[in-house]
Design a protein around this nucleic acid. Sequence first.
DNA 1: TATTATTTGCAAAAAATTAGCAATTATGCT
DNA 2: AGCATAATTGCTAATTTTTTGCAAATAATA
Lengths: 135, 135
Amino acid sequence: MSHIKLLKNHTLKATPQRLCILDTLQECGHATLEDVQKIISKKFPTLSLSTIYRNLNEMLQKDIVSEVKIANKKDYFELKKDKHVHLVCQNCGKIEDFEIATDDISKQIEAQTGDKVLNDTLYFDVICKDCLSAK
Amino acid sequence: MSHIKLLKNHTLKATPQRLCILDTLQECGHATLEDVQKIISKKFPTLSLSTIYRNLNEMLQKDIVSEVKIANKKDYFELKKDKHVHLVCQNCGKIEDFEIATDDISKQIEAQTGDKVLNDTLYFDVICKDCLSAK
DNA sequence: TATTATTTGCAAAAAATTAGCAATTATGCT
DNA sequence: AGCATAATTGCTAATTTTTTGCAAATAATA
Ligand SMILES: [Mn+2]
Ligand SMILES: [Mn+2]
Ligand SMILES: [Zn+2]
Ligand SMILES: [Zn+2]
């Protein structure tokens, strides 16, 4: 879906600032606030920091954007997309999305705890394929 | 292991302030900085906020303490313990530790990506047993 | 094109975190 | 037990990060 439609669907005006923020996230995949700020300052130098904060918060609220919180790292933002886990390379720092079924482990938890599992958020520290082959 | 030994093993002097911080984390299981601050202000009113910051950071460095980062929540701290996943009740907010094997899913990721998986960090949103039965 | 409710950019406020430094203290050694 | 010393603490002040208020600008609608 176009970013314009995405915004309108969530009753947000499609301002150039918002579109720029969405484009930046799309480009980056996963970006910290600092990343977003830095990239935007080139593409759109007048876009203010308040506007970045305000809109990232709004988009989080509206679930257009989600947060990726990795221990010992700054928080990342990403466009909301299909459910996926994150593979974080400990060598090059790259963060990759990966789709995998997590039903088995959820079922196991339900069976062993009596809790009802609604959702999950999984991170894997890896050495990525590229870093492995570069050795 | 006693907290005194734990500190000494990491070349940190066993000050009352540090012991108080460790006791607080042990008590709470998982505590935000705000939690720690609030609880400590009762047990040890003269312990300064700088000292809390300084020590939590040091203990993170030394891997005595770890961070629990959950989307849409403040960051939590906990004493380092055996590997476990986190079950986060969406009803009452409780965070529970749970030990479960994660080899299967790691192996699957390795097989499908060619990456080497070193470690994982898993969160599950749940409705906990207690909240379920309270309905 | 005119109207209007939203949104933006700026400047200022508030909140969170870190730094500098004199006074205090835990630890190891007589 | 008492000393020497490097580490640690509690302050206060500095930075950094995030939020707020508001006039000017602008996207959406008719
Ligand atoms: Mn992702
Ligand atoms: Mn835990
Ligand atoms: Zn890599
Ligand atoms: Zn619950």
